[in-house]
């Protein structure tokens, strides 16, 4: 038997060491998540020790840096919501329409060209979108509104919302295209055999079957829009503004985080710590959206036995 024995007497030990090193590396990703959670949580608790928790979510006055400062984040949440809504109003129809065209009408060759082309949009750095929004789109909107006699702000929610929508198109189209393509062909053929037109087949059979995936893509898009920073920092306003008028300037959670942390306030002043309270709200909301999104896509995968998404 001796001839088959390995020369390396420590082989088992080495194997174990390597395995534990790999586990250690994998644990770093978990450490990161908890690192983010706790670093934000602890500073946010510091903030809520100084300022009211209830007023933070219900108050409408946001006046940091002054004496007797008030931190009511409602207008900030409203601005974030408005800009996200505008972005989704742009990205959802265009993204979904593109996905349907690529998966249902385009030839495989055309799809292989179109899909990467659309994904270029996702690869453009957000600071570049921000510049585009601030220098090109916002003045354009001001000019158009002035032409019809409405006054628009140079930091309008519309400008940053539309550009953010363009950025999100590929996130929606790519994932939706994957799930629509994954819907089994037998469903389409059955529907066409029953005399439905192509559009009816798509609208009544294919899309409802792919719905969990499409909702998942939408939630992912919303989460991207909520957390997007550079576009709004460069093109949206700084003023918390509770309004329905999308031509007015509005601010978002991310803008206020950047503003609070690039200011010259002391680190443990409520003005700086408020960034972490806003960050906590952002973290919780995006985490919930992501978890729901992943769950939905898993259900879809199980239903149609897809392996790679």
């Amino acid at each position: 038997m001796a001839t088959f024995e390995t020369k390396n007497k420590h082989a088992h030990l080495q194997e174990d060491i390597i395995k534990y090193l790999l586990i250690l590396a994998a644990a770093i990703s978990i450490l990161t998540t908890f690192g983010i959670l706790f670093s934000i949580l602890f500073e946010a608790i510091e903030f809520f020790k100084l300022k009211s928790f209830v007023y933070f979510f219900t108050g409408t006055e946001w006046t940091p840096g002054v004496e007797n400062s008030q931190f009511g984040a409602l207008p900030i949440f409203a601005g974030t919501f408005m800009i996200t809504a505008i972005a989704m109003a742009v990205a959802l129809p265009i993204g979904l329409g593109s996905a349907i065209y690529m998966s249902e009408y385009a030839t495989p060759n055309a799809r292989n060209v179109l899909k990467p082309l659309l994904e270029i949009l996702a690869g453009i750095p957000t600071v570049v979108y921000g510049f585009f929004a601030a220098i090109t789109v916002a003045p354009f909107i001001v000019k158009i509104s002035a032409a019809v006699g409405i006054e628009a702000s140079f930091n309008s929610a519309l400008a940053s919302g539309v550009v953010m929508g363009i950025m999100i198109i590929p996130y929606i189209s790519s994932l939706s295209d994957d799930v629509i393509t994954a819907v089994p062909d037998s469903l389409r053929k059955g529907s066409l055999a029953l005399g439905m037109t192509k559009a009816e087949t798509i609208k009544d059979i294919v899309i409802p079957s792919a719905m969990p995936g499409i909702i998942s893509a939408t939630l992912l898009g919303i989460s991207k829009a909520l957390g997007e920073t550079m576009i709004v920092v460069m093109a949206a306003g700084l003023r918390p503004n509770l309004s329905w008028n999308i031509l007015e300037d509005m601010t978002t959670v991310t803008v206020r985080i950047v503003d609070a942390l690039t200011g010259d306030q002391a680190f443990n002043s409520p003005a700086t710590l408020s960034a972490f309270a806003l960050g906590l709200a952002l973290f919780v909301v995006t985490l919930i959206l992501n978890i729901v999104s992943v769950r939905l896509i898993q259900k879809f995968k199980e239903k149609y036995k897809m392996s790679s998404l």
């Binding site: 990703s29 978990i30 990161t32 998540t33 690192g35 983010i36 670093s39 934000i40 602890f42 500073e43 992912l220 989460s223 991207k224 909520l226 957390g227 997007e228 920073t229 991310t254 985080i257 950047v258 942390l261 960034a275 972490f276 960050g279 952002l282 973290f283 995006t286 985490l287 992501n290 978890i291 999104s293 992943v294």
Partner: peptide, 19 residues
């Protein structure tokens, strides 16, 4: 966890770096 990490807004990584 890795899936979630991929979808956390990038600005929150900045908060982690700072803290």
């Amino acid at each position: 966890n890795i899936n979630n990490l991929a979808a956390i807004p990038s600005i929150l990584f900045g908060l982690l770096g700072l803290a």
